[in-house]
Simulated assay, not measured.
Amino acid sequence: MQPRIPRQASGEQDGRRPDGIDLDDRFSAELASAVSGARRRAARDGDPQIDTAHLLHSLLECDAEARALLGDGPRTARVLGYLVQRSIGYGLRWQSAVEDSGAVPVVTGVAGFSPPAAAAMEEACARAARRGAVRAGGVDLLAALVADPQARAVEVLARAAVEPDAVLARVESHFESTS
């Protein structure tokens, strides 16, 4: 029987990449917490990899700033409701399937993440670097998650009547007002 969550390569057992770069060194405390939560959620749900919906769910639980940019309270509650339903069986059609939207290039070297989730993590770090930040934050990840229209996170947002383009516009406006 194959394990549900892929084992980490020997060089990654301590959470570090083989090249010695600790992924958490690239993340704010909130984002590191969200990634840890997504990892636990995927394992608990029996999913083979952390996908963009796991990341969105944990991000909304861990990062108040990202949660606020999603929209008003009822909108966020609807999104979290869909995500909870997914974790208790709503998303069973996703289990045992790798998330691969085809809309983003495959990113290698991030064990345990679906290709779109790995690409979103890399894009979050790139967004932070473009604005001169040392670490990516939850808002960077939120923007990266909503950028792939075929990602599971975007599917959840659509079911909750949340427009990804509107979320991205709020994120961009947020960064313009804080710079």
Score class of each variant (00 low, 15 high):
Arg152Glu: 07
Ser101Ala: 13
Leu70His: 05
Glu155Val: 12
Ala133Glu: 15
Asp22Trp: 03
Ala169Glu: 15
Gly11Ala: 11
Asp14Met: 04
Met1Val: 13
Ala29Gln: 09
Arg135Pro: 01
Asp19Phe: 08
Arg78Gln: 06
Ala68Trp: 02
Gly81Phe: 08
Asp14Gly: 14
Gly137Arg: 11
Thr76Cys: 14
Val79Pro: 05
Gln85Cys: 02
Val79Cys: 03
Ser96Cys: 08
His57Gln: 10
Ala147Glu: 14
Ala43Asn: 09
Arg78Val: 04
Gln2Glu: 09
Thr178Asn: 06
Ala166Cys: 08
Ala34Leu: 03
Ile21Leu: 14
Gly73Glu: 15
Gly37Tyr: 09
Asp51His: 07
Val167Ala: 08
Val139Ala: 10
Glu65Trp: 09
Val104Met: 02
Ala147Ile: 04
Arg86Val: 07
Asp45Thr: 10
Leu70Lys: 05
Gln95Cys: 09
Ala117Thr: 10
Val104His: 00
His174Lys: 02
Gly46Asp: 07
Asp19Thr: 09
His174Thr: 07
Pro18Asp: 11
Gly137Lys: 09
Arg78Pro: 05
Pro48Glu: 08
Gln2Ala: 13
Ser179Ala: 13
Val162Asp: 04
Ala119Trp: 01
Ala53Ile: 02
Leu56Gly: 05
Ala133Pro: 03
Pro164Leu: 05
Arg86Gly: 15
Asp19Met: 01
Ala143Tyr: 10
Leu23Pro: 15
Gly20Arg: 10
Pro149Phe: 04
Pro3Phe: 12
Gly112Thr: 05
Ala169His: 14
Ala119Ser: 12
Val154Ala: 11
Glu122Thr: 12
Leu83Glu: 02
Leu142Met: 07
